[in-house]
Design a protein around this nucleic acid. Structure first.
Lengths: 242, 242
DNA sequence: GAGTGGTCTAGACCACTTG
DNA sequence: AAGTGGTCTAGACCACTCC
């Protein structure tokens, strides 16, 4: 896919770290050694190292070197922009997906979605409600709105598998960024119907508006998790320029 | 503070965007124009633009330009690594801080903290509990553990003001990154004492382990928010190299 | 002083978008 | 064809750490 050099170096080093060839506290080879090892210029090595630093694998220290800070115990759960299926791959639990609702509606019927996706009232949307089940119990409910004309060929089979894979591989779109919001809400009647009676009757809601790389907003998603089970893990740096 | 060129350009452009000189959808001047305007090389301009992109201000598009995607309505609340006081500055609400507890304990007494900060059992810790109040009501409770010997001169006045300011400006340490975890928990007895009786008796807990730029873990913090009021906003990009 | 990462430059070639 | 951003290079000078 990504055949540029710094990405290859990033892949190589990050796999080494994840696989334990370097442990937390170890120092990576110096930039000078890496540029000889990979046969590239220094700036190219530095781009790869910057990515490792941004993503929480290393901490670069002037005069010392690049120290590994990655710890396998930090499994980034809901964090970052990944579809449900992609998140699953990193996790132990394997959920089954049940498509509860899949219908076409007009954006005007859901004003909050219409404004979040910046649409006209007449725009057709796919409305989806999907349950994520594990051992017969619903743990997550996903409510999604997609722009219909962007994916008129959407089927229940695709919705059950991975819509992101469909969008990227079949339709050739590039999913790029999202704005997320996490809140804590009492269950609605629909929630209780889908989750069954649970205590407390609250959900952790991860709302996101997802954009393509041409900045088009194309998905409005609310992912509802049982409040008692919810866990969001994140790595963040201070001052990436601010 | 940060007198390097790409940071200055970043500051200049990000302020322009926040102040509305560029609106969402506008295209920034091209890299070529910017490098002439700022009198720097192209890579330097590109570093500034990359920071803007990482932080959700712009989306760069090959062949087109750098399009502004920042919308003033997205106020990043708890997001990113900022101390309580710094977060406050971006917000409308101004809380008052009440120091409820401030005492020295041994790390061995709080095993989860000891392991998270990677300490010996005998290491002395500052244990702090602080209430964040607004109009007489407690909205947030912060529970903190700091390594005592790193800041033996900590006082209640500092704890009431800003510990981060003290660490960075007085002690000259550089706070660098953190791992965060968000969960929802039923209130403990202490919570009820500090928040008073509220419905639902749940808190949103933001737990973080904060590290200095030499990778030393120095703070264990649990920030408890009233669940019904909690809102965490985040901007995230897909594939920053992965 | 030798080795490390941080910043910056000037120039090259490529891929994409728009007229 | 002209303009845009994406990648990469070779080299420079600096600040910091460690011996």
């Amino acid at each position: 896919m990504n055949l540029n050099k710094y990405n290859q170096i990033y892949q190589s080093l990050s796999s080494d770290i994840v696989e334990g060839k370097y442990e937390a506290g170890d120092v990576l080879p110096s930039e000078h050694k890496l540029l000889r090892q990979f046969g590239v210029s220094r700036e190219t090595v530095r781009k790869a190292l910057s990515l490792l630093q941004e993503n929480g694998y290393i901490q670069k220290m002037k005069g010392k070197g690049s120290v590994v800070i990655y710890n396998p115990s930090m499994n980034l759960t809901v964090s970052h922009l990944t579809s449900f299926k992609e998140v699953q791959a990193q996790q132990t639990r394997v959920y089954t997906t049940v498509v509860h609702t899949m219908e076409k509606i007009e954006a005007g019927e859901v004003p909050h979605v219409q404004s979040a996706l910046d649409l006209k009232g007449e725009t057709l949307l796919w409305q989806l409600v999907r349950q994520r089940k594990y051992e017969g119990k619903t743990h997550i409910v996903d409510m999604d709105y997609f722009i219909h004309d962007m994916m008129p060929g959407l089927t229940e089979e695709i919705a059950q598998d991975s819509i992101y894979e469909y969008i990227e591989k079949r339709l050739g779109h590039s999913i790029s960024y999202s704005h997320k919001e996490i809140t804590f809400k009492p269950m609605t009647e629909l929630d209780i119907e889908l989750f069954g009676p649970v205590t407390p009757p609250y959900t952790a809601n991860v709302k996101s508006v997802v954009h393509l790389s041409d900045a088009t907003p194309f998905q409005y998603n609310v992912s509802k998790h049982l409040a008692s089970e919810f866990r969001f893990v994140d790595f963040s740096r201070r001052f990436t320029g601010e």
